[in-house]
Amino acid sequence: MGQHSINNYKGKFHSSLSTYMISFIRERNLYTSKDECVELQYTMGQLDRYLVSIGYTKKYLNQESIQGWLGSFSGIKDITLYRKYIIVAKFSRYLCEMGMDSYIIRAPRKLRHCDFVPHIFTHEEILMLFNTADSLRQRSTQSKSFILIMPALLRLLYSTGIRIGEALNIKNEDIDFDRKVIVINKSKNGKQRYAPINDSLEFILREYLAWRTKIKKCQLDKPNAHFFVNFLGNNPCLRAVQTWFKKILDQSNIVIKGDPETYRLHAIRHTACVHAMMKLSKGGMNVYAYLPVLATFMGHKHINDTEYYLRLTLEMYPEILKIDKHLTPDILNKLSKYSNMNYEYE
């Protein structure tokens, strides 16, 4: 989302807070992904229309207006409603920073503690996904197809554990092969962090670059150009990548057990964290001691977000972690006391 798209949206806000909404979107646009900005604009548009419908004229958000807007949604998934809570809370904080004493709402506990449990791919299933992506790329003849980036993209997601939105926003200048790191500038939390490049990932990324040099479109090698593109030099949107992942999953012969919705692209990030914990445990490391390191690796704002993966690992691979079950609940309770209970599953 660039400045052009923000300007096109100006005429679509009509409430008393329209000016602040546009400036809020413009600021968030500096460090959020394209798809996140689309969601933000859509949600702010919903809020704007609601405020107009009730004749709201204040230059701040009060508790009644926020609760009324959130209460107007019915029949939507908990996770969707939760994201609306998060967006309106961020907008209220922004208004407070602008000197407007706005009410900041917290999402109900039942929404923050979503029951959704992602599928954790086995090592064998990860290899099946990689092999299928490689095969589909070799057979592809369409220049517009984004299957051409999928082998490198999937390996990047699994190797680094970064979010798909963060991966698609990587620019050429963000990849430093000399230091073996990728700079994540547009992160979910708005903070810069680094993702490591191991030897196998470096080989895959350089292989992808060798293929990309064959594209005739100029300026693809500019520092601020997107790293992942198709044969036409276009950066993919999230939906296109998700569609291709679904095709890869369908053709990989992975047996779907339980809810198919848990076999989503984002599950690779969850898998990366759980597999990292498994590797630490097999190496004789104390997983609890490494939670702060894993939190940094995953880009988590709160250590409890990382501890959620530990719970998954305990449930799915108890024989691997070999942790005294009598000590585990006490340790988890202590972790909960020192962190904000706000699972984001991201």
Rank of each mutant, 00 (worst) to 15 (best):
I6V: 15
I6H: 06
Y9P: 01
K10Q: 14
K10C: 11
S15Y: 03
L17W: 03
L17A: 09
R28Q: 14
N29M: 13
S33H: 04
V38M: 08
V38F: 03
Q41D: 09
M44N: 09
S53M: 07
S65G: 10
Q67T: 14
K77R: 12
D78T: 00
T80I: 04
V88C: 09
F91N: 09
S92Y: 07
E97M: 08
E97I: 14
L111W: 02
R112M: 15
D115N: 11
P118V: 08
H119V: 08
T122H: 00
E124A: 07
T132P: 01
T132Q: 09
A133V: 04
S143T: 14
S143E: 12
K144A: 13
K144T: 15
L148H: 08
L153N: 05
L153E: 08
L156Y: 09
L156E: 06
Y158F: 15
A167Q: 07
L168T: 04
L168A: 06
K171W: 07
K171H: 05
E173K: 14
D178I: 11
N185A: 09
K186Q: 08
K186S: 11
K191R: 03
I197K: 05
I197L: 09
D199E: 14
S200P: 01
L205S: 00
E207N: 13
L209I: 13
A210F: 06
W211E: 04
R212T: 00
I215P: 03
L220M: 07
K222V: 02
N230K: 07
N234F: 15
T243C: 12
I254L: 06
I256G: 00
G258S: 02
P260E: 14
E261T: 15
T262Y: 01
T262G: 01
Y263T: 12
L265Y: 00
C273G: 01
S281F: 06
G283L: 12
V287K: 02
Y290A: 14
M298V: 05
I303Y: 04
E307L: 13
L310N: 03
T313K: 01
T313P: 03
M316Y: 07
L321E: 08
I323L: 15
D324A: 10
L332V: 14
L335T: 07
K337A: 08
E344K: 06
Y345T: 07
